[in-house]
Structures are given as C-alpha cells and as structure tokens.
Design a protein around this nucleic acid. Structure first.
Lengths: 343, 343
DNA sequence: TCCATTATTCAAAGCGCTTTGAGACGATCG
DNA sequence: CGATCGTCTCAAAGCGCTTTGAATAATGGA
C-alpha cells in the first residue's frame, strides 16, 4: 500500500495524508487521527527510497571502518559502533559502513561516500593528531562529527572526553600518594587522544617538579602483550630506579603490567600502583580486575550514541552552532593504588 | 550534474545515456565510449536515491548487531563484518547495521528492516541451534544468507565451515597420538557451531571406543578467563585422571588452558597437548602462540566476503538455487601437540 | 449580511533514474 | 525493388514521496 492508495481509501489528497503523518500543523487533529488509524489498519509504510529522492536526505549516517586492525582497537570500535547503531535505530536512522578496498586510499572512500550521496553525514572516529579528514569533509560539504579531536585550523563538531584532565588527575593522585617514578603506557603516539593523555600526565608531574624521563614513557598498541613487554623492561631495573606506579591507556595494557609485576614478584596495590583508563568495554571493567583497578572511566558507547544524536540534530538545523563537547572523566579509586613504598 | 543534463550535453536521450553507462548491449561501443568520456569529464554520478526508487533495489545489505556482547564474540563479529564491508564495497553495495533497542525483540528489528524496504537482503550471523530467523525472513520474503547453519525445516542459503569435520580431525589427531583423556572447551551450547564441534569431537573418540565424560566437556563464553577456570578444574585432578589434551573452540580459551597448565606446573606441547580453532583474527594467530599452536583454521573474514558475494548473486538471479557451502577446515600441526605421556 | 481572516485541504510539479514500446536507419534477402 | 531484419536511439511513463502555491470552507468582526 502506497500513499496514493491510502489517500484514495481516505478520500483525501496525498498532500494531506503526507502532512498528517509527518506531523505538520496545518492538518486538523481529527483528520490526523483518522489518517493515522487508516495507515495503521492497512499497514502503510512510506517508501524510504521515494522519500530519499524527494527530500534529498538519505536518513543514513556513514562510518568508515578503521584501516588498521588490532585487537583492542577493534573492541573499542565495535563498542563505539554499537552505541551509534543503537541510537541511530532509536532515531530511525541507518548506519552504513564503508571501507577502503584494494589500493584505495581512505580519502577516496570518503569521496565516494559523499559523491554517491548515500549518507547525510559522517562520523569520524579515531582521529590522528594531524588528520586530513575534517578538512576533506568540509571541502566536500559533507556534515560530520569527530569522535575525539584533532589539529585543525577550521572549526568542526566533536565529542571528546577530557583525556588531558583524566590523565592529569590520575598522575596527580599518584604524586599525592608519594610516587615519584611513574610510568605511562600510552596508545599510539599519532593518535590524538594519546597526545592529550601524555600532556595531562606530564603536567601533573611538572606540578610536583618531577621529571618525566623517556624511559618511563611508552606508547604503542594497547594490548596485554605489549604492556607486558614494556612493563617488564621497566620493572627489570634495580628497586630504587624502577617505577612504583603505572598509568595505562587501556585495561589491556594494565593486564600486561600486572603480569610483568607478578613475574617480578611484585603485587599490584601493594608494591606497584596501577591506574588505567577504562572505556567500559563489556567484560573488561576495571572493577573486575584483580585487584579492582583505580581507573579513569568513560563509556565509549555513550559517545557513539551522543554523536549520532548530534549528527541528526545538525541535519535538522544546519545553521545551529557546531556541537563541541568535552566530557569530564571520572577517576574512580579502587584497590590498585596505594602510597608509594619507602625507597 | 544529473542524467538529463548529461544527455543534453551529449545530444542523446536519457535512455541511451543510461544504457550506455549501465552496459546494455543495444548501445554501440562508439556511443558508449563517448558517453563514458562525457560522464567522466563532467563528474557525473548517478543518484543512488533515484536509482533505488526506479529499480526498487536499495543496493544495501543488512546485518543485525548481535544482542549479547562478549569480548571474543565482538572480535569475531567485527572481523566478519570487516569481510562483509570490504566485499560489499568492491561490489558497490552498502552494508547497514540494525540493532534492537529498548524493549524491542530481535524479531521486530528484522520486521522493521524488511517493511521499510531499506535492504535488499540480510545476513544472519551466529545462528542458534534452534533459530527463528530463517523462518521469519522467509515468511517476510526477504532474501538472506546465514553464516553457519541451524535446524530448519525449509531450505535456506548458507556459508558454513565444516565444524564437525574440523573437530573430528582435531580429536582424531589426539587419539592417534595416544591421548585417552581429552577435554573439549567449547562455545556456548545453544550456538549451532558448538553443537557441530561437539558432535565431531565425540565421533572421533567413539571411533576409538573412548568415553567422553561430562566432566571433560565444557562450554561457555570463549574467553581466556573462562578457559582458565574450566581447565584449572580439570587439571586439578590426580595425574592419572586429568586430561592430557585439550581441544578448544577459540584461541582465547587456549590461552586460559595454557595458564591453567602453567599454574599446575605443566607445559603445553610437553605435558599437555592443545589444539584450538583459529578464526584468523588479527593479532590472535595460532602461530603467534607460545608454543605455536596446532589449530583448525578458517578465516572468518573470508566467510563474510563470500556471503556478500552470494547475496549479490542471489539478488541478480533470484531463481538460482540457494547457495549452500560448507568449507573444509585445515588442521595445521604445530608444536602444541605431542604423543600422550605414559600414565 | 458581507468581507477579511484563519483553518483545512487540494492539484500538480518535481526529485533523477530505469524501462517499455516504438521509430529510424541501413543492410540483407527473395 | 519492396519486404524483412538487425542495430541503434528515442519519447514518455512510471517509481512513491514531498512541497509549493492556490482553492475552499469555516469563523469572526463590522
């Protein structure tokens, strides 16, 4: 059943039926109710294709599958995606995924999505410190929102967490507890969030006039294996030189630290303090850690939900100011942190 | 630039231009070349929306985000999805994701996707032993392909790996090596693949007249933590009663077994034999295990690619027989298996 | 009672593509 | 030489919705 048939049944014009269904004010409530009832009765569903053609909007948001793949990156992306899809579903939007194939550059993927007008807006995830995508999308006149921030001359919409503040707070907690040799195991250094965390971390040390020596700063893939290797190296030094505390960018890294500590005969929360960032991935909560982990936490899925919400709002009112949100991050103290052992 | 403008520029009708571009035979090669050149020159891109409306096809395949979330499940889904999106991209198809929200049942998600005619076909992942979805989709007249199999009275298209054969081969290898107490750590029992693996495993034991006692058969979430707990319990028995070999449905479980063995002072490949199924997840290859793991392996991403290919083929020729593929699974022997220790 | 408003409803024109059914043009055949 | 066939191209009719601009009915004020 299509609109024409439905309006024939009702003895109304297509215009009126369309407006009644879409909540336009110039239709009397009585008529609207009648139309709604008939639509329901006959199981009328407007054709998405026809609406797309008529409105020029596709009701679809696009997301590009990250090129590189790693274990935790995939988990984070999936959880973020889950949030996006969940909220999009509530708002009757679709999410479509794109991906570079063959020798295509990522740029061409964005160009293609835009040219084909298959999406109304795009979501940019995992921004690098220097990321071309905002400039590209702006040039292509494709609305977008970034999950995170990046260096960009021009303004753009984003939702980010306060990575700098979170890692400042984490490191400050440790310095307040008397730790003086604190290691940072961070995400890959070209990713913007890692740079922000690094900055926050350093500021907290600087506030106490503590050094941040290179050999206590590590960055790389945020998985257990890597954390284990990095922490093992750091903990292999003599007692007076090795770190008494670790701040990690992921719980995966924290697991590695824990294993490295165990191998060195050290216990987390007793000999070594540990704080990690917790993205609230299912099955990887800081509270499930042994011992329960002091953590900066912020649900990555929620960011996905919010970004979709903002994309839709942006499409409804393109003249509104660009959304720019920085979410505060909770620092939850649990059992993995303790006062620094006397040297 | 749209079709009308392009044909005006060329001095041809829209019909001819459309056909030239879409490869219809009744257009001379000379004209086709001219049209192609002009389209390229003016950067003409057909409107997806208009094409959808005219053809009734959306050029989109649908996939429903699995409701339950677990660590490895997410990784497998993501890798599968990556394969789907990659191939879809090559074929100029879109993949859109749907998800139940609020109190919606999963069924209603499928119904909604179908009613709104937003997808041409759906991909059904992670089928249960008793899965309603094939029947539902058939009833809704929505083409679909299942990744895996399920019990269903009616025929349906699928791509699956030979889980039964793989686990038969794995268990047989172990019995051939003289193992008599072999444990199986499997995926959740309501999932069809787990049932298939269980069957293959049991057949191999039965072929040697070996028992398959319940206390050596475990199933649950396929993550390290769970594997550790299950294997620890099994290995805590006296030497003559504990298993000398394990077959695991995932490398995550195998990691758990390894840790349990280590805790019991046993080494994989020396005291305990270990075989796992390897879905070829990036960063979790059996060859990266220590020791390199004997494994049944089959890339889950390839299955995604193939399914998309088959979906598209099915849409192009709906009268073709339903694709039903069962892929053989390689058993690659590495260093984690050895002859059974003498009791 | 009549005109100016306001509240409802409508007819028709797209949106940009595919596809049907024909027409035009040479070439081939009886 | 007219009839028959291919080959190539075309005009026009949708696909099902939104939206513009106008018409009609209902209401209120003078």
């Amino acid at each position: 059943m299509n609109l024409r048939e439905l309006s024939a049944v009702l003895g109304l014009s297509q215009t009126t039926v369309s407006r009644a269904l879409n909540g336009f004010p110039e239709v009397s409530e009585e008529t609207r109710a009648r139309v709604r009832a008939a639509a329901e009765l006959h199981g009328y569903r407007p054709s998405a294709a026809a609406r797309r053609l008529a409105t020029g909007q596709s009701g679809t948001l696009g997301l590009v599958f990250p090129g590189e793949r790693n274990f935790l990156g995939d988990l984070l992306f999936t959880e973020f995606l889950r949030g996006c899809v969940g909220k999009a579903s509530e708002l009757s939007y679709d999410i479509t995924l794109a991906m570079a194939h063959g020798s295509q550059t990522e740029e061409s993927v964005y160009r293609r999505a835009v040219r084909n007008a298959r999406v109304d807006a795009m979501i940019v995830s995992s921004p690098l410190i220097e990321d071309q995508r905002p400039a590209l999308l702006r040039q292509l006149k494709m609305p977008f929102i970034v999950h995170g921030r990046t260096r960009s001359a021009e303004p753009y919409g984003f939702v980010d967490i306060d990575n700098e503040g979170a890692f400042f707070a984490a490191a400050k907690l440790l310095t307040d507890l008397g730790h003086r040799r604190i290691a940072l195991l961070n995400g890959e250094s070209r990713l913007n969030f890692a740079a922000d965390r690094d900055r926050g971390f350093r500021k907290a040390l600087a506030a106490r006039s503590l050094p941040a020596p290179d050999d206590l700063l590590w960055s790389g893939a945020m998985v257990e294996q890597e954390g284990l290797a990095a922490a093992t190296a750091m903990l292999s030094r003599p007692a007076g030189k090795r770190p008494t505390a670790f701040v990690c960018s992921s719980i995966g890294l924290a697991l590695g630290v824990k294993r490295a500590a165990a191998a060195a005969g050290l216990a987390i929360g007793r000999d070594v303090a540990l704080i990690a960032h917790d993205d609230r991935l299912h099955g990887m909560g800081a509270e499930d850690f042994d011992p329960p982990l002091t953590a900066t936490q912020s649900p990555i899925g929620e960011a996905g939900r919010r970004i979709v919400e903002l994309c839709v709002a942006m499409l409804r009112d393109p003249s509104a100011p660009l959304p720019q949100e920085v979410w505060p991050v909770d620092l939850v103290v649990r059992q993995s942190t303790m006062a620094a052992p006397g040297d």
